[in-house]
């Protein structure tokens, strides 16, 4: 898992270095940053989401690495690879995107919730969007996709002993597997 993280983190640097080397040649690659916000709509709870993605564009293709913040149920921070394809090179174009990575929990007051361990899980998001370029070669994005994230958690079971006993906690552990699915409606800006 660590190796994947390292690769994900280093990918933009590697690509950026490659670009610098090739800059004086044909400039086939362009560095782009995407920031986007939106709504995650699902069966249980809706919430906002924030994302930032950095990557390289080659003609209609874009590849980058992103992170974000999801606020629903179990607040989490996904770290993911992002791939996009524009249907055309026109000012207005539809695009497809796909994200895959790891979902890290970022839970408040874990101790109060008796949470003793959390294991990162899968993060995926894929969908379709509309890209409208500005005159300065920046662009606005609107997209709709399907997001799926997972998380495992271990909690201490209830124990009167922890209240009245010598402090040694003998409560059994409760294990939870969370699998969350959301429609992701996002608005973004590319620069």
């Amino acid at each position: 898992m660590r190796k994947i993280f390292c690769l994900l983190l280093m990918a933009p640097l590697f690509v950026y270095a490659q670009v610098n080397q090739q800059k004086q040649k044909a400039m086939p690659l362009k560095f782009e940053t995407i920031v986007q916000t939106g709504l995650l709509v699902g069966d249980n709870a809706e919430s906002a989401t924030l994302q930032a993605i950095a990557g390289m564009r080659h003609k209609k293709w874009y590849a980058g690495v992103g992170t974000g913040l999801d606020f629903y149920l179990q607040r989490s921070v996904p770290l993911f690879a992002d791939v996009r394809y524009d249907f055309s090179a026109k000012r207005k174009t539809f695009f497809l995107y796909g994200d895959a990575g790891v979902n890290f929990a970022w839970t408040k007051n874990k101790e109060q919730q008796n949470i003793i361990d959390q294991t990162p899980g899968l993060f995926t998001d894929a969908g379709i969007g509309l890209k409208i370029a500005t005159k300065k070669q920046d662009a606005f994005l609107i997209s709709v996709g399907y997001s799926h994230k997972q998380l495992e958690e271990t909690q201490k079971g209830f124990s009167w002993w922890s209240i009245i006993g010598p402090g040694v906690d003998y409560a059994s552990e409760l294990k939870y597997n969370y699998s969350f699915n959301r429609i992701a409606i996002k608005f973004g800006f590319v620069f």
Partner: peptide, 9 residues
């Protein structure tokens, strides 16, 4: 869009 949560005890 349904979430799935399981508890093991």
């Amino acid at each position: 869009l349904k979430d799935k949560c399981t508890q093991t005890y």
